[in-house]
């Protein structure tokens, strides 16, 4: 069933080949231009947040790839308020399939692959250039990191979506944590002042998506609050975030149906 749901969306989007290519292309360009900000800064300084240009590229590439995965699967969930207002949500509720799965497949937008391709290419290239010297454990981490990061961002998207059951007009509020989390994750966490670093590590685990794993992979020391070993925390944090996200989502649906909570 999952295959039919997603397959139909993929086929529909590939059927407009030219516009798919233009869309994916502009998404790719988007992430390159986002990187120009860091590139310009590193034209003026040797290290940024303690990292060189190539090391920053590892962080940026990894964060972009991870965000692209989440954006692909759950990016449109912050449009939930539109579904609530138009009544579309009601047609989804009378089907025998979990709501979250329906929304995810309904809005799957493949154009975001453009961003993923740029991110993953930058991640791999920069890892090699930065002299990544893998042990079996760090190799596994290197491979799993984009997926785990995607899991963390996905959980953030689901929470952001769930919040709209309470705050119908508050769509933008949630952007601070999803898109804001992405913005933070693309940068070395060391550049943020301690309160912000704490917020984006312990509350919104953005710095655990890319920066912390990069410290492990390239064997670098971490700043205060984000020690190198935090790079191994991605998986448990992703699982915890998903648990919270699902609880929040269920509470949101219960609120919508008026079933208490």
């Amino acid at each position: 069933m999952v295959r039919t749901l997603y397959g139909s969306r993929i086929r529909a989007q590939l059927s407009y080949r030219a516009s798919f290519a233009a869309d994916a292309g502009s998404q790719a360009l988007l992430s390159i231009i986002e990187f120009l900000e860091l590139w310009v800064i590193l034209g003026h300084v040797d290290t940024f947040g303690g990292l060189t240009l190539v090391q920053v590229m590892v962080v940026f590439g990894l964060a972009s790839a991870a965000f692209a995965i989440a954006d692909l699967a759950f990016g449109e969930i912050d449009g939930l308020s539109t579904y609530i207002r138009s009544g579309k949500l009601e047609t989804l509720l009378v089907r025998p399939v979990p709501l979250l799965l329906q929304i995810s497949s309904l809005d799957l937008s493949l154009r975001r692959l453009g961003r993923f391709v740029v991110g993953i290419a930058m991640y791999i290239t920069a890892l090699v250039l930065a002299g990544f010297d893998p042990t079996p454990a760090t190799m596994v981490l290197a491979i799993l990191a984009p997926v785990i990061g995607g899991g963390i961002f996905s959980a953030l998207f689901v929470m952001a979506g769930a919040l709209q059951f309470w705050l119908i007009d508050g769509r933008e509020f949630a952007n601070a944590f999803t898109y804001g989390g992405n913005y933070v994750a693309q940068n070395p966490a060391a550049v943020f002042a301690l309160p912000m670093r704490a917020l984006f590590t312990f509350v919104i685990p953005a710095s655990l998506v890319a920066y912390a794993p990069t410290l492990v992979l390239l064997d670098l020391p971490g700043p205060m609050l984000v020690p190198t070993w935090a790079g191994w925390l991605g998986l448990p944090v992703a699982l915890l975030a998903w648990m919270l996200a699902l609880l929040l989502w269920r509470a949101g649906v219960r609120r919508y149906t008026g079933a208490g909570g």
Binding site: M1, T4, L5, S8, R11, A12, S86, G87, K88, E90, T91, V94, R95, P96, V97
Partner: peptide, 22 residues
């Protein structure tokens, strides 16, 4: 007033998706 069909897919595909959902 609200469609439960997939707007950009052929009608046949909507039935296929609903069939697999059920």
């Amino acid at each position: 007033q609200r469609s439960q069909l997939w707007w950009d897919l052929p009608l046949r595909d909507s039935f296929a998706i609903l069939g697999s959902m059920h």
